[in-house]
């Protein structure tokens, strides 16, 4: 279990560094006092507010204070709306989490059967069609696909009303209905990439000697595929799927904008526009922690699937 202990320590150090970087970026490089006062800032007012906010204390003290309140769940107060950032973020979080999870499920559910199918029947008709579709799918960025889906299913088929959103408190199913097209827009390009990787991985494994051996021992196609090939073929794909979790979140920020979904992404972008640093800073910490944790989980999973690997 030495490996997990070491990984966990690395995780904690990484989170510490991330928090320090975010603190430096938002509290030191950009002056909170000047940002709070905005256009009404005068040097005297700024100096007064700096004193009031404790911005003249040593950096280490300020960092400690900031980190302590952040961990306790106090994310500060929004400049633009004068309300606690915590409430603003928590209100938007379920939607974004929903879209991200749904995209991930769609990606996995679509890419595994397709990737295995292509890998098993390399050079077949299905393989050619899927490879070409995949190449096109990869070239359409998620937000663009979102615009396309809005036109096709929103404007043309009237399956949903573009720009409309049913909050979670009005029922789970209508809410989920609003998420399905954004999730598809995010999932499709990612699916195309995963299919390509899985296909290459399956083809690679199918050509190895142990496959010939198991066939010669009389094992059927299904057994060879499930018991031998897939177990090995999946290893390189795992890291990719994990990094997809980070990419999905990044794309979600863009795609929320396309479908006008009031999630984290829209909040982040509008707060950047408003120079509302407490909100931006909180969201950046959330996003960074997410990416770091996802990578941690990927490393651990990687090791579980393939015990030969002992990454530093």
């Amino acid at each position: 279990m030495n490996y997990f202990v070491r990984k966990t320590i690395t995780l904690i150090i990484t989170l510490f560094i991330v928090s320090l970087l975010v603190f430096l970026a938002f509290q030191v490089i950009s002056d909170p006092a000047a940002a709070m006062l905005g256009t009404s800032a005068t040097p005297e007012k700024i100096a007064e507010l700096r004193e009031q906010l404790g911005l003249n204390d040593p950096l280490a003290v300020r960092y400690g204070r900031w980190l302590a309140s952040f961990v306790k769940g106090d994310f500060g107060t929004s400049y633009a709306y004068s309300m606690p950032v915590r409430g603003m973020v928590m209100e938007k979080l379920p939607l974004t989490v929903g879209v991200v999870l749904l995209s991930f499920l769609l990606m996995v559910a679509l890419s595994f059967p397709l990737g295995i199918l292509c890998g098993r029947h390399e050079g077949g008709v299905a393989d050619h069609i899927i490879t070409i579709l995949g190449q096109v799918g990869m070239s359409i960025p998620a937000f663009l696909l979102g615009v396309g889906l809005t036109y096709l299913f929103g404007v043309f088929f009237h399956w949903f009303t573009p720009g409309a959103y049913a909050p979670l408190r009005n029922g789970f199913w209508p809410w989920l209905g609003c998420l399905i097209f954004p999730a598809l827009a995010i999932a499709i390009p990612r699916t195309a990439m995963t299919v390509k990787m899985l296909r290459a991985s399956v083809i690679d494994e199918m050509g190895k000697n142990y496959v010939v051996t198991s066939y010669s021992r009389g094992a059927g196609n299904a057994v060879v595929l499930r018991r031998h090939v897939l177990r090995n073929a999946i290893i390189p794909v795992i890291t990719f799927i994990a990094s997809s979790m980070a990419e999905i979140v990044a794309n979600c920020i863009l795609v929320e904008q396309v479908f006008a979904l009031p999630g984290i992404g829209v909040l982040l972008l509008s707060s950047i526009g408003n120079r509302d640093f407490p909100v931006v800073q909180t969201l950046v910490v959330f996003l960074a922690v997410w990416v770091v944790v996802i990578n941690f989980i990927a490393d651990v999973l990687y090791q579980l699937v393939d015990p030969r690997i002992r990454l530093g």
Binding site: A25, A246, A250, V280
Partner: peptide, 18 residues
């Protein structure tokens, strides 16, 4: 390694925010 773990769009958005 640390930088490539983050999607570049995400990093770009953070820098633009600052």
């Amino acid at each position: 390694d640390a930088l490539t773990a983050f999607p570049s769009i995400l990093l770009a958005i953070v820098v633009v925010a600052v």
